[in-house]
Nucleic acid binder design. Structure first.
Lengths: 224, 224
DNA sequence: GACAATTATGATGACTTTGTGAAAGGCCGG
DNA sequence: CCGGCCTTTCACAAAGTCATCATAATTGTC
C-alpha cells in the first residue's frame, strides 16, 4: 500500500494548511476540501481515503451534516475539530459516529497522535499492518511477502531475515546483531550463514535485491 | 549524540529527584511531571520522549489512568513504580501495556539496568544519532556520511576515522591517540598509516576535506 | 636559502571480507 | 524409511581494503 490518504475539511484555508503540514510531515497524503459539498465530492471520487478530519463550524453545510451524509455510505473514521469545551456537541457527535474529537486550539502532537491511534485501531497501520517499503510488502500475520504486488515464496528463515531488514531499514546491521535477532541469541553457528541467506533473498527479490546492501567490514543494511 | 529523553512522573518531589539523579548520571535527559495531567501535557508537547517512568500512587489521576491515556496514542515504553509485592496491580498493568515494573524501594542499579534494557529493546539507544558539523552529516546507525546532503562512499576505516574526528572536533589529536581510538589498542603498526587514510578521507570529502587540518609535528585536528 | 624533519601522495601486494555454488545434515510428511 | 525442502557449512573465486614503502612536497629552523 502506498501512503495513507487523509481528507481535511475546513473553510479556513489557514487551518487546512496547518493540519496538512503536520500530516504531510508524517508521510500522509492529504486532500483538502473547503466546504461540505466539496468534501463529499472528493470523498466519493477518491478511492481509499482512510480518514476524514472535519471542522464543525462551516458555512452552509456544517460538520455534523457532512458527517451524517458520509456515515450513511461509509464507515471511514472521522475526527471532528470542535471549539473548546463544547460537550453538548460531542455527545451529539458520538451518535453520528464520530470517532474522535480534537478541540481547538490543539497541538500538532495531539493531532498526529490521535490520527495514528485511529488508523491503528482501524488496522490501516500498526501491528497487523503490512510493512511496505519500496514495492516490497511484508505481511507478518500472513507470513507472506509481495514484490510489486506479486507474492514470492520465501522459506521461514528468509522471511524472518527480510522482516528484520525492513523493520530496521536504513540501519546498518552487523552480522552479530542479525544473528542475535533473527536466529536465537544462543545460536553459535557460523556468521557466514547469513551471507548465504542474503544471497538467496537477493536472488528471490529480483531487482529489489539491491536494497539489501553490503557494508564492507561491517554487515548489511536495507535501504530503498 | 543527542541525549535520550525520559519523563519521570511522581507526586513526591523527593522521589523524582532521586530517580532523576541516577538517570542524569547516565547522561539521560530527564523531564519531570508531578501529576498525571502534567505528564500528558509534557508528553504531547515534547518530541521524542523515549521512555516514561510512572509512579502508580498519585492523587487525582493515578498511574494506571495515565498509562491508559498514553497507550491510546502512543507505544512509548512505560515503566511503573509500584509498592512492593502488589501482584494484582501488575497483572492489571500488563493488560494496559506496561513494559516493566520496579517495586519500591529499588536500587539505582536496578533502575538503570531496566531503563537500558528497555531502551535497547526499542532500539532507542544509539539509533538516530546524526552528528552534523559544517555540512557533514555522520549517521552512525546507518554507517553513512553525507556531504551537503549527498551520500559519499567511505570504507570502514575511513568511516571510523571521520567519526572520531567529528566527535572530537576542535581538539588536536595526536597520531598515537588516533591509533588507540580508531584502531585497536593492540595495533602496533606504522603511525604513517593514518596519513594515508587522512589523504583518502580528504579527497573523498572534496572541499570539506580542508576541515581535517594538519598540526605540524603533532597530529590532526578537525575544525570547521 | 639550505638542511632536517615532517607530512602528502601514489603504487603495490598481502590480507580480509564477501559472493557463490555445491554438498552435507536435519526435519517433516508421506 | 524415503524423498524433498530447508538450513548450515565449506571451499574457492572475486572483490575490496589496508598497511607499507618509496618518493615528492611541505614546513620549520638555522
Amino acid at each position: 500500500m502506498e501512503s495513507v490518504k487523509i481528507l481535511v475539511v475546513d473553510d479556513e484555508s489557514r487551518m487546512r494548511k496547518l493540519v496538512k503540514d503536520f500530516l504531510v510531515k508524517q508521510n500522509y497524503e492529504v486532500l483538502e476540501a473547503s466546504n461540505g459539498e466539496e468534501a463529499l465530492d472528493i470523498f466519493y471520487e477518491n478511492k481509499g481515503i482512510a480518514l476524514i478530519i472535519l471542522d464543525v463550524m462551516m458555512p452552509k453545510m456544517d460538520g455534523w451534516e457532512v458527517c451524517k451524509e458520509i456515515r450513511s455510505y461509509s464507515d471511514v473514521p472521522i475526527i471532528m475539530l470542535t471549539a473548546k469545551g463544547d460537550e453538548r456537541d460531542e455527545l451529539q457527535g458520538f451518535d453520528l459516529g464520530v470517532d474522535e474529537y480534537i478541540s481547538k486550539p490543539f497541538s500538532p502532537k495531539i493531532l498526529v497522535a490521535r490520527v495514528e491511534a485511529i488508523l491503528r485501531r482501524s488496522n490501516v497501520i500498526g501491528a497487523d499492518a503490512v510493512i511496505s517499503v519500496g514495492g516490497i510488502e511484508v505481511n507478518k500475520a500472513a507470513h507472506q511477502v509481495k514484490i510489486d504486488g506479486k507474492p514470492i515464496e520465501l522459506s521461514f528463515k528468509e522471511f524472518e531475515l527480510l522482516t528484520y531488514f525492513v523493520e530496521n531499514k536504513g540501519i546498518a546491521l552487523s552480522r552479530e546483531k542479525i544473528l542475535n535477532n533473527v536466529w536465537n541469541y544462543d545460536y553459535f553457528g557460523d556468521a557466514r550463514t547469513i551471507d548465504t541467506h542474503v544471497k538467496k533473498l537477493r536472488s528471490k527479490m529480483g531487482s529489489k535485491g539491491e536494497y539489501i546492501r553490503t557494508i564492507w567490514g561491517m554487515g548489511y543494511k536495507f535501504e530503498v
